[in-house]
Each structure stands twice: as C-alpha cells, then as structure tokens.
Design a protein around this nucleic acid. Structure first.
Length: 595
RNA sequence: GCGCUGGUAGCUCAGCUGGAUAGAGUGACUGGCUACGAACCAGUAGGCCGGGGGUUCGAGUCCCUCCCAGCGCACCA
C-alpha cells in the first residue's frame, strides 16, 4: 500500500523542498501500480461496508472472503481510468445479479481523493475515474524524476546475465545477429531500468569443429593462392565466404608461400592464430558501431583449457547421469526430460559443444548470477530442454536459465528472397545492413516485433522507408517538444514547477488526459518488458506516446495561453520529453532536438 | 513420425493473469497549415480472430482435435 496520496503542492514553499517531498511520495515511481492498489482497497472496503450495513449478504465462499478480482486499465477511456470486475466474479458468492452488487459497492465507495467517481457500467463493471489532481500528480512525478522516470525496483537488484549475439567468429555477422543484438541489448537495458543488476555477455565459440573447419578452409584458400585455384579442390563443407579468401590473402601478403611446404596442421594453426583474433576484433568493432557493448567476452576455449569442461563431465558422471557406449560418453538426457541421450565426449576423446555449453552455463551460476538469459536463434530450440535438464542434473536449478528464442529474419530484396546461409557466401552481413539502413531504424525495427515472430526485412523497402519509419514518428514528437521549448524560451517563458502545479484547472482537454495516461503507464511498461523478456513492448509503447502527444499538440496550445495553464502544459510537454528520451535511450536510438 | 514457434483487416502486427461494440500502423479513398514544426492530425472503407468440438455468466485468450507455414530431431555448433 502506498499510504495514500497527499496533494499539498499548492501551499508548498520553495521548489527544492517540493522536489524532495515529491521524490519521497513517489518513491515507488510506478504511480499506476499505486493507483491500482488504491482502487482495489477502495472497492474491497466498500464491499465490506456494504456487507456490514446489510446492503449485501455475507459472501457464500469457502473462507467467507470476497473472491479475487482484477483491476485493469480499460482500452476505452469512456470506461474509466481503472476498471474492476469485482461484482462480476462475486455474482455466485452473493447470489445476486452483478449489476446489483456493483451498485451496492459503488454506493459505499470512499474515493480517497484519488478518484473523481466510481461508475457502474456494462454487465457490472466498476469503473473508476481519476481526480484531476491525480492526473496532475502524474505529470509532476515524471517531471521531478526526469531522466530516472520509468525506473522501478521490481528486479530487486537480482544479478542477471544476458547473453546475446555470440556470433560465430569464423565469419562476419548476419541478419540474425543484427536482430539478436538489437533485442538482447534492449532487453538488457529494460532489465536494468526495472532494477536488475545486469551483465551483458558474448560467448566466443573459439573452439570445436567449426574452428577446425575454419582452419581447413583458410588453408585451402591459401594453397589455392600459392598453387592456383584449379589445382587445389575446395572441400564440400568448407566455409565458402569471401571473408575466408580475404583472410588467406592477407596471410599470404605477409608470409608469401613460406607456409606452403609446412605440414597441414601447422599451416592451419598459423592461419587460425592469424585470422581468429582479427575476426573477433571485427565483431567487436561492428557491434560497437551498432551501439552494442559487453561487460564480458567469454571464451569457449578458456573453458577447455582450464579443465572446466572435463570437470563438468566428471561431475555428471559422479551424479550417475552418464554412461559409455561405442567409446563415447553419453549424457542420460532421457532421464531429465529429453527425447534422447546426448554425446558429451566423442569416441575420439574430444568433448562436444553440448558439454562445453553445460560447463559454460554452470560457470555463469558459479559467478553468482541468480538468472541467466540467453537470446538464441529458433534453430537452437531443441537445445533448450536438454540444457536446462543438464543443469538440473548438476544440481543447479535449470529453471534459472531462460532462453529467448528468436525466429529468423527472412531477407528479401525487391520481392526476391535472399539466401542467408553462411556457406553460400552471399549472406547479407550486419555491416552491409548498416551501410544501407541507419542504426536508429535497424534497432527500432528489430525491436518492433516479438522475438517469436518471424519477420521479413525488405532491403529495398528499408532504404526507401526513411520518412515512413515509425522511429521518425517518435523522434519527431521529441523534436516538436524541443521546438516548443525553444519558442517559449525565446519569449522568456520557462517551466516553473510550483507554478505549473498550482494550476487549478488541469487537465482540461481529453487529449491531455489521454497523454497523461500513457505517461503514467511508462514504469509498468518497462517492468513488463523486462519481466516478459519482450522489448517490443517499449517500441509499441513509444509509438503510443508519440501518437498521444501529436494529438495533444494539434488540439492544445501553449503559446499565447493563460499563464497557469501554459505552465501546466509546459510540464506535460516536459514529462513527455522525459518519457521519449528515456524510452528511446533504452533502445539506444538517437533523441534529436531537431530533425 | 515426434517436438518447438506461429496462423487476428489487402499487407505488417497488438490484444496484459479469460471480460464491456476485436485494436494500431500501412495501403486505398476524403478532408485539415494566415497560430508553438503537415516527418502531423481528423474521417471513410476493410474481420466466420486457420477449421471443428468443449469448459462458463462470458473465449482471439483456457482444453481437445484437425489443417497450414517456418524451424528442429548428428559422436555439427
């Protein structure tokens, strides 16, 4: 319970003191949640009073209490600011029609100064309307908390690890990485805003079969340069990308044919040692250009070298979760919810990717993370259950690992599908994408839809799309606000908080109320995005805020308006500016003052 | 065959733990700048929510079944 709201701003002396009071009052910052609690309590007590006064019979439930009910924000503003289904769900308990119950409750409702009225509507909904003062206090809250508006502590400081992209270092990043990067980075940001202690991590797959294949492919390209392409056949399953040729070419430019006579193994080793660090640093650079940075770059090979992989296999064996067959060590996945058992150590003694990944995730929990979130391509979905199961088998609660599965990006150019396979060598890379599409658009676009939906990215459209792009719609709202602020400032008018809060008749327009409702929803939206691992909520929300602002802008004026109302509207503009600034900031999209 | 995702307006997608006449954007059509930025706003048209059963006061939402699409089912990662 929030302890109620006290609307005493009018008599307050001094902005500083006022600010302090505001910060205390709105410590929880999510005023909508507070309002929900207030509404719930208001109705619950009203129902209890009605029973006491025998306006309603005693509820015929097992524990004699009222049934659970929902307080929600109705989609239609004419249904109030909050709506409760208390009367509907307790129809049986009272043995009365819902509308009758609702009327009895509404008659007893003490609106606590927060609500203007409680209305009975439809089949028996109880609709509550905010008092104007509450609308005003939401604006104040957003203004006072400013660049922190939207932060909550629903995460309680829990340590969370978010691993995303983790692109294969054998080649350039593709569109899936672009989507995963935007999604993962924004999710991490939303989690941080919701009060989690977030660490961003990139897992470098610098070991295993694909590195061997990488070495082989490089070696063949190198030998082709030395001996002629027609004299050295390229392996069927090698990496055919041009990037491999380029790396081999660079290596040749440095060493000439000095390595041509060396044993294959030595040649491959030298090529890997040359190319891998360069690929990794390219990945870092390209991600930085995409505005993504990591707290930790975790190397798979380090897990092998430290013996962590062997240790985890050993530990699984001690738990009785393994057996040997055909010379390989198998994990009993079927005993932990899997469809079939999995190989941990091959007959040739080399551990599988799966074994390394178990060791990797075990390591995350050993580093003190309460939760690990991985953003994976949907093609890895088969890996989810067995990964969790393996953690369970180790005695590390596998439910602490959450996987965000991301469907593929179907790339299209002028209506024609473009192959994304690394092996065709024709894949569009992240860098290609960013050459055609601004980072703002790409990051916004990839965060517009839920990870689970497969999306189509039309390159031709993305380039032409500049002014139709929703990101500009949101940015434009911000630029418009800045423009108003500049204009008024030119007339010597700036926001004076105590004065703005002193406006007795505010809000006056429906557009103002609609905008304030959206502003009030911000902390809850961020928290929901964090808890539901759904950063798309934020982009959708920002579009809603921009819409509400544009409507407000066309219907409500500031310039030439009466001073108190002008101040109140100035505060509303400022509140909106903070929301857009903070929201776009989470997406790491620019917040332009002019455009 | 088994499993994971998804199927909502012409197109791209929302729809929160079941709730009030199913919503946006875009495309089509019609209006609105002598007032703070028209990269904007207002209006019209457009729907057996994949099909069929069931659960209940009430289902796009939950259960069963079928159909369709993408993906996965390696001693690859």
């Amino acid at each position: 319970m929030s302890g109620g709201f006290t609307f005493v701003f009018k008599g307050e002396k001094g902005e500083k003191k006022l600010m302090e009071k505001m910060r205390k009052t709105y410590d929880r910052m999510d005023m909508l949640e507070n309002a929900r609690d207030e509404a719930r309590a208001c109705l619950q007590q009203a129902a209890e009073r009605a029973i006491k006064k025998a306006e309603l019979p005693k509820p015929n439930t097992e524990d004699g209490k009222l049934p659970d009910f929902v307080v929600e924000v109705p989609g239609d503003a004419s249904h109030g600011d909050l709506a409760a289904n208390l009367a509907l769900v307790s129809a049986k308990a009272f043995g009365l029609p819902p509308r009758k119950i609702a009327e009895a409750i509404a008659a007893q409702a003490d609106t606590r100064g927060m609500f203007k009225k409680v209305e009975v509507a439809g089949p028996g909904f109880l609709n509550l309307f905010y008092d104007d003062a509450f609308f005003g206090s939401i604006v104040i809250c957003a203004c006072v908390t400013g660049e922190d508006y939207g932060r909550t502590n629903v995460g309680g400081g829990e340590k969370v690890n978010v691993e995303f992209v983790s692109a294969n270092p054998t080649g350039p990043m593709h569109l899936g990485n672009a989507r995963g990067g935007a999604l993962g980075d924004c999710l991490a940001e939303a989690l941080a805003w919701a009060g989690y202690d977030v660490s961003r991590e990139f897992y470098i797959n610098d070991a295993g079969n694909q590195i061997a294949k990488f070495g082989l492919s490089l070696a063949v390209r190198y030998l082709q340069i030395v001996r002629g392409e027609e004299n050295v056949p390229f392996p069927e399953d090698g990496y055919q990308g041009d990037d491999i040729r380029e790396r081999a070419g660079e290596f040749y430019d440095i060493h000439g044919d000095a390595f041509a006579g060396k044993p294959q193994e030595e040649l491959e080793r030298a090529l890997i040692d040359y190319a891998l660090p360069r690929n990794i640093s390219d990945i870092k650079e390209h991600l930085a250009r995409y505005r993504i940075g990591y707290d930790v770059w975790f190397s798979e090979s380090a897990l092998h070298q430290s013996g962590a992989v062997d240790a985890v296999v050993q530990k699984l064996a001690e738990k009785g979760a393994t057996y040997e067959k055909d010379g390989a060590v198998w994990y009993k996945a079927t005993e932990h919810g899997g469809d079939k058992d999995e190989v941990l150590v091959r007959a040739n003694g080399v551990p599988t990717y799966f074994a390394a990944d178990i060791a990797y995730h075990a390591d995350k929990f050993e580093r003190g993370f309460a939760r690990a979130i991985d953003v994976w391509g949907a093609d890895h979905h088969g890996h989810v259950a067995r990964m969790k199961g393996a953690l369970d088998a180790l005695g590390l609660d596998g439910s602490r690992l959450d996987i965000v599965l991301m469907q593929f990006v179907r790339l299209v150019r002028d209506g024609e599908p473009v192959r994304m396979s690394k092996r065709t060598g024709k894949a569009i890379t992240l860098t290609d994408l960013l050459e055609e599409v601004p980072v703002d658009s790409a990051r916004f676009f990839f965060n517009m839809r839920e990870p689970g939906s497969q999306i189509e990215f039309d390159l031709g459209l993305a380039v032409a799309e500049d002014s139709d792009n929703p990101v500009y719609y949101v940015q434009y709202a911000h630029a418009r606000i800045c423009s108003i602020l500049r204009t008024l400032e030119g007339e010597g008018i700036t926001l004076d908080m105590p004065r703005a809060f002193g406006c007795a008749n505010f809000p006056v327009a429906d557009e103002e109320r609609a905008l304030i409702r959206r502003i009030a929803a911000f902390p809850g939206e961020v928290a929901a995005a964090a808890k539901g691992y759904d950063s798309a909520r934020i982009t959708r929300y920002l579009i809603e805020v921009a819409t509400a602002f544009h409507k407000f802008y066309t219907n409500c004026r500031l310039k030439g308006e009466e001073e108190m109302l002008q101040q109140a509207r100035l505060a509303l503009c400022m509140a909106t500016k903070h929301v857009i600034h903070n929201g776009l900031g989470m997406l790491k999209v620019d917040v332009p003052e002019r455009m």
